[in-house]
Amino acid sequence: MFQIIGIVLLFGMVFGSYLLAGGKMAVILHSLPFELMGILGSGVAAFVIANSMDVIKATLGGFGRIFGGPKWKKQDYKELLSLLFQLTKTMKSKGVVALESHIEKPKESPIFQKYPKVLKDHFAVDFICDTLRMMTMNLEDPHQVEDAMEKQLEKHHHEAQAGAHALQNMADALPALGIVIAVLGVIKTMGSITEPPEVLGGMIGGALVGTFLGVFLAYGMIGPFATRLKDIVEQDGAYYKIIQSVLVAHLHGNAAQISVEIGRGDIPSVAQPSFVEMEETLNSLTE
């Protein structure tokens, strides 16, 4: 919603100030289709050249995230902490053997099945199960486990940011592409140098629309989109960081409820359940 409001304000302030200053939209509207085709079209072409199909798909999917916001809400974090509570409590109270059936076939696990949204996230499930599997193989050094988890998180985070980086690269290229299109407009104008001044003025104005569009699209739209997508990826990445915090805290010998409380502290403030909310949720699981 705020992104749509921002776009409306962007167009209103830029073109409103132009019109109030006595500018005429006729020159811009006459050149707009051709200039937009040249700038945005070449920008998209450069984007396709520079990126793999996976990155292109991630970037296109990222537009939904830009307008939709972070994937994980307060209830999702509560469910993740509840899942981790049950897994660590099972491991501590019943031993490694009782946990193996849950981590080997999570889709068939009665614990995992309680939390379908977690189960749909393949990275989260693999991250949890692989880490617990390492623990069952007697890798009980918290620092080794934490290092291994950190490497997985860095890899996943780098891949998740690919769409935002691709958009930012496109934004960086648009002003230069706008100059390219503007130069072509000047070349066209020079080819008609015998025309009257009013005709040449219109042609030069049309050429400058190219420079305007390149800068406008780069810093007014594509660049902010890239920044927004990067921030959302950062916020959603906290979801996986919580898994690391809880499982490492468990390895340090903390009780399941203490480990979960440590993980709760890593939840972004806007989605963080209170201590009391989380305590009530966990108590309902033990009843």
Rank of each mutant, 00 (worst) to 15 (best):
E100F: 00
L282Y: 10
K230T: 02
G43V: 11
A238I: 00
V8G: 06
G6D: 13
G206F: 02
F275L: 14
P106E: 07
G205P: 08
D266R: 05
G214E: 12
I242W: 00
M1Y: 04
V145E: 12
E198F: 12
G185E: 03
K241R: 13
H158E: 14
S284P: 00
H158V: 03
L80R: 06
V186F: 08
L99R: 11
A21T: 12
T286D: 08
L29F: 11
M203Y: 04
G41N: 06
T281G: 06
V125M: 04
K71N: 06
E277R: 04
F11C: 08
K155F: 13
A255G: 13
K114Y: 02
D141H: 02
G61W: 07
G41S: 09
V183H: 01
L229G: 00
F34S: 04
K24H: 07
E100Y: 00
H30P: 00
R133D: 15
S42M: 12
T88I: 06
S284G: 02
V14P: 01
D141S: 10
D231M: 13
L285H: 04
K94Y: 08
D231E: 14
E277T: 11
P33V: 01
I222F: 10
I4P: 02
D172I: 14
A238F: 11
F112I: 08
V186L: 14
G95M: 02
N254H: 10
A21M: 13
Q75V: 09
A164G: 01
M190P: 14
G210M: 09
E154K: 11
G16C: 11
F85S: 01
L217R: 03
T227K: 15
E280V: 09
G38C: 04
V44C: 09
S31R: 03
Y240H: 15
E150I: 04
E277Y: 11
G210E: 08
M149A: 10
Q168Y: 12
A26D: 13
Q161G: 02
K114V: 02
M53E: 13
G210P: 14
E100S: 09
M13L: 15
G178Q: 09
M190D: 02
P196A: 13
T211Y: 05
V248G: 09
S259K: 08
E159M: 05
V276Y: 12
V27L: 03
C129W: 10
D266N: 11
F63R: 06
S192V: 00
T211E: 05
H157K: 13
I49Y: 13
E100H: 00
G201I: 08
K78P: 00
Q161W: 05
A173N: 03
S269H: 12
V96A: 15
L213R: 12
I179F: 11
P224I: 14
D130G: 05
Q152I: 04
I49E: 07
G62E: 10
I4V: 15
V55A: 14
T88L: 05
H122M: 07
D121I: 14
M137S: 13
G206L: 02
L177S: 01
G205S: 13
E280R: 06
S245N: 03
N51R: 05
I179L: 15
E159W: 01
A171Q: 07
H30M: 05
L83H: 03
L184A: 04
D126Y: 06
Y239A: 07
M53F: 10
I66Q: 11
V209L: 07
H30C: 00
